[in-house]
Design a protein around this nucleic acid. Sequence first.
DNA 1: CATAATTCCGTTACCGGTCACGGGATCGGT
DNA 2: ACCGATCCCGTGACCGGTAACGGAATTATG
Lengths: 343, 343
Amino acid sequence: MKQKITIDDVARAAGVSKQTVSRAINNKGEISPKTRTRILTLIEEMGYRPNRMAQAMNTSVSHMIGLVVPDITNPFFPEIVRAVQDAAMANGYSTLICNTDEAPELEVLNELVTHGIDGLITFTHRANDQDVSEFADRFGPMLIINREVEHPNITSLMVDNVDGACKAVEHLVELGHTTIGMLTTELESISNTRRVQGFRKGLKAAGIPIDADLIVQADPTLAGGYAATMDLLRQRPDMTGLFTYNDLMAVGAMRACRDLGRDIPTEISVIGFDDIQIASMVTPALSSIRVDKYEMGRLAFERMLQLIQKQTSDTATIKMEAELIARESTGPVPIQVAQSTVS
Amino acid sequence: MKQKITIDDVARAAGVSKQTVSRAINNKGEISPKTRTRILTLIEEMGYRPNRMAQAMNTSVSHMIGLVVPDITNPFFPEIVRAVQDAAMANGYSTLICNTDEAPELEVLNELVTHGIDGLITFTHRANDQDVSEFADRFGPMLIINREVEHPNITSLMVDNVDGACKAVEHLVELGHTTIGMLTTELESISNTRRVQGFRKGLKAAGIPIDADLIVQADPTLAGGYAATMDLLRQRPDMTGLFTYNDLMAVGAMRACRDLGRDIPTEISVIGFDDIQIASMVTPALSSIRVDKYEMGRLAFERMLQLIQKQTSDTATIKMEAELIARESTGPVPIQVAQSTVS
DNA sequence: CATAATTCCGTTACCGGTCACGGGATCGGT
DNA sequence: ACCGATCCCGTGACCGGTAACGGAATTATG
């Protein structure tokens, strides 16, 4: 049994050629209105749906896109994924998703290509520029998030990390802090580099000298943030403001502060980055630099669709701003119960 | 330009028929070892990969499975998705994912089928049994999580919700609580029904009479838990133990307790269900009934693969236990920093 | 009424692989 | 040296659709 109902079955039932059925479905080519409606109602009755693989074989349009994220369990990604899928589904596209944190990125990409995807949205970070370029040569439209690669097939979507980090520092400075630390993470990460850059820029703008001792590297996790903060606060108890590479580190940092008896926000202020769901759920609620993740996914798919349909050949980088969200961890603000739909 | 490299290109380059190339790749049929290795090295050099769509057209094996979740941004799902994808990738399978909380479920399923998926793992909850059965008639192997449908093509994976809820109550009872409330959610949900059932069973086992006033329905969200708890604690200030349908409600409940000046856990104990990442991150850390979500996804794919490859025709329900995780919210336990890998 | 222009639909080839079959070359046995 | 078995490999058809072309039926035109 190959497939439940084929176009031939419909053609036979309608007493026409399958080409005519095809014309009826796609409303393409010459076909009389009454034949068309007759076939369409018949299709409806039979519950026939064209096989997208067969379609893709001659049209080269599979109605699938690839979506590659490092790790879907990282709270930063689900919202982006959701946005891409919502937009995809609304346009008749399905999404093939892969995680790459423990798999060779290019291998994953190549595997996705064999399925005939029409486009690719990815957070490819580990593969080097040259390999990515070579891949893009052989493949079609590609959209990379938080990375810029010069290539006619590659469009980038960049969050303004420098500005975001800068806003975090500005916020702390406005609250009166002058001894401000930062938890950073692996240097290979472009986002991290930019956020450190923004941190320095913010301090400089406020006329605060940069103290290398206050910039500490750690794992971008809750445990990493906890450990680094324990160390940092012991060595530099004078620190009253802390900015972290991401929210999970900030949550860990807050836990460390509590364990060291440093009240938040009266004795120390903490601000994270990304504004993941958890940020608004912890106590005290975490201030953060929000990246509009849903919008990010939406924009990514929107441009991707245009590229696929060749409505545009614009591969100019899409830029997004990051926004300060001040909550309890950087000052006494009213408690807000977040809106969230979760079962 | 249809595709970068086809089997014909390889055949031409090797000076053989494409059938021979096919034999070399699949190591199937009669082929001399030296021809085979010659072709394989050539394939390696050229970077050729067979088009899975074309393969699927005659073999009916697309190496894709469908994965349908209500909402990937719900913290309950990413880990399951990840587990399925890890297992899938390890077996050469790709995953087509869709969200269904705002789309007609059967429509989504049917759409996935047109892509030729080999199997389907789903959390289909809203569609009624008959529609699901009819769908299963036309489709192949299906695995539904947290729902049982009698059908030769359908395998179920069930978490023992009754037992899990029972464990939560037992835990509260052991701590000395006798006035225990529960936040439930929509009645249509099977999981909810079972958890309420377990709640009642636990009380009965402890000899505590069931007080209908203490069972309150709310949205399964942080906001829902917050609002319901505010109401409940005002009407029943004597309540000292609270069990919630899920962790998000519990986090909301804890916030409500704090706002009402009820200290956790000295004045009231709270326990949730699912043990999502957030549970270990909030303060105080939330006790919960853990569902091993990674194992859930792993088991689901494992069985699915067997069914696809017809290694088994076993559609017996897969059962999973839920486990008590006691943290700060139900008693003074040492603080644990959770292990978590997040960027 | 004959011819040209439309309208509508069927036929054939093809997308990129795999299956079933058949046939040439090599080898062994007598 | 002849014949059958074995080992390889090629040929044609096919999976389920679509593109391109061509031809019959209908309508318009002289």
